[in-house]
Design a binder for these strands. Structure first.
Lengths: 149, 149
DNA sequence: AATCATATAATGCAATTTCATATTTATGAG
DNA sequence: CTCATAAATATGAAATTGCATTATATGATT
């Protein structure tokens, strides 16, 4: 029985697993009129974190010109503000406005509730182990040792 | 020490881990002039699998109108062909041309070599366990039990 | 200090993606 | 058999994305 390549290829499996586990919440976001892109920025800046365009790119998985424009849109909606970094004026620091914080908080609460439902029925240490594994992959972009039960 | 939300949120960690582990290969694809979107279709159809537009959407993680147009482009490049399904003429079956197969084969060989490098140093059973875990997440869109070492 | 190399973000523009909807074919109820 | 509904794909129009480049700031070297 020959499996298809994409059913055994690590990168495909990661991307598909990520999409599958996110689909439900992303649908909920859409029903609220919030794009995944905007959600990622709001979540990255909550509660009151200042990040540069470059840092937001890494956190939200988009290219720099895209991020500049996404921030433009958030600023236009008064959800975020830009301010110049004093020590390095090439950098732009992005922060949430109070209005943006409120918006982000609602979404984050829903995200936490959704995650709790996803993880319900699994032992806390199993969930923690999976997160630790994902953090290792994300930080090293390489493979750790695992065992699944 | 309070971690940021996106450093502990399962969906963020999955997406970031997926992006991180794929980055190197995606860069290589770009250097070859191949988009990730095209790569996913070619890999899904290789070696000679006929898939409908809808099946390709699921496999390649894009919306249906996008897939219709991506297939348009592959067909224009003579990498793939469309043919109507005889039993259900609403459906369109997409297949690689021989030329497309050759192109796909080269990319898949590189993908396999890259995956082997990623997994080098890890026990085969660990890699298999991770893949099994990802398959479960992707198929159930829910969480299995895990332990990491 | 002047110059060159590098880092960071913004912008013009072309390509891609997607939403909303249309089109075509299939299926089921009466 | 006909009509209503659903399913699969295509298409028009608008929004988003990203490449290539530019603008500006910093740092290093002489």
């Amino acid at each position: 029985m020959s499996k298809r390549f994409t059913d055994t290829y690590l990168l495909s499996l990661m991307a598909q697993a990520s999409a599958a586990i996110s689909a439900e919440f992303h649908d909920w976001l859409a029903s609220e009129g919030v794009s995944v892109a905007d959600w990622r920025i709001l979540a990255s800046l909550y509660p009151d974190i200042g990040l540069t365009i470059g840092e937001l790119c890494a956190s939200c998985l988009t290219k720099q010109p895209t991020m500049t424009r996404m921030v433009d849109r958030l600023v236009a909606q008064e959800l975020a503000i830009r301010s110049a970094d004093r020590t390095d004026r090439r950098r732009v620091e992005v922060r949430l406005t109070p209005y943006g914080q409120g918006r982000a908080e609602r979404l984050i609460n829903e995200a936490k509730a959704h995650e709790a439902r996803l993880l319900a029925g699994y032992k806390p240490e199993d969930a923690a182990a999976l997160k630790a594994l994902l953090r290792i992959i994300k930080d090293r972009a390489a493979m750790p040792s695992v065992s699944a039960s």
